[in-house]
Design a protein around this nucleic acid. Structure first.
Lengths: 107, 107
DNA sequence: TTAATATATCAATATATCTTGATTTATACT
DNA sequence: AGTATAAATCAAGATATATTGATATATTAA
């Protein structure tokens, strides 16, 4: 029950649904690129990324000071269905920005 | 997005997960039988049943003063997967009681 | 119409969650 | 060591959600 509720709780937030959709669309991204793309402050993103990670949706790979988050694979059935459902939602996706690739990543 | 968040929000509560599991197991039940079976007060049940209904999981059929709730059919894919997931959770289900069938349904 | 019963809604309180800005931690570079 | 950058955590305030007891609504029966 706890695992299920944690999974569902992670989905129960507009910001996190947008994040999942954004990862589904663009693959691995660092926090700094998410800030630039989504126009959200770092502490907010960090919080939501942690919740998604601990709910089993995301994984992290560290490269230097950067933390690259991406959708975990393989996902179990229910989480996959959730991602699939989110993929078909009518969401306005902001344009992807990758300042990290140009050394322009300042908070 | 709104419909998805409403669906997910409905799943994000231990009481409502238990209710879905109980309906999945026993079919249509009136509020009064739920009170007796689950040991919850009426206003609490009424609130959660409303949330589950408005999230598309339940339907209601009135018979006199009784309101019989049951899992809606057909369910769309994501909601079906949610029910399926809940079906496999390790939940201690209280014993079913049907005082309504014996005229013993007093609050 | 009146009373009785089942359910729905309301008001108040308690608990949880989200957002922001400040601080801390971790890594890389000189 | 000292500095700089990316990310994580913390503290405070704001918003949302759950619980309870009281009240309102709706249907049935006398």
């Amino acid at each position: 029950m706890d695992d299920f509720l944690k999974t569902v709780a992670a989905l129960n937030d507009e910001t996190r649904v947008l994040l999942l959709r954004f990862f589904d669309e663009h693959g691995a991204l660092c926090v700094c690129d998410l800030q630039a793309s989504l126009g959200m402050i770092q502490s907010r993103l960090s919080r939501h990324l942690k919740i998604l990670k601990e709910a089993g949706f995301l994984r992290v790979e560290r490269k230097g000071t950067w933390a690259y988050y991406s959708i975990r694979t393989p996902l179990d059935r229910f989480r996959s269905e959730a991602i699939e459902e989110i993929r078909h939602l009518d969401i306005m996706l902001p344009k992807l920005q990758k300042p990290s690739q140009r050394g322009e990543c300042s908070l």
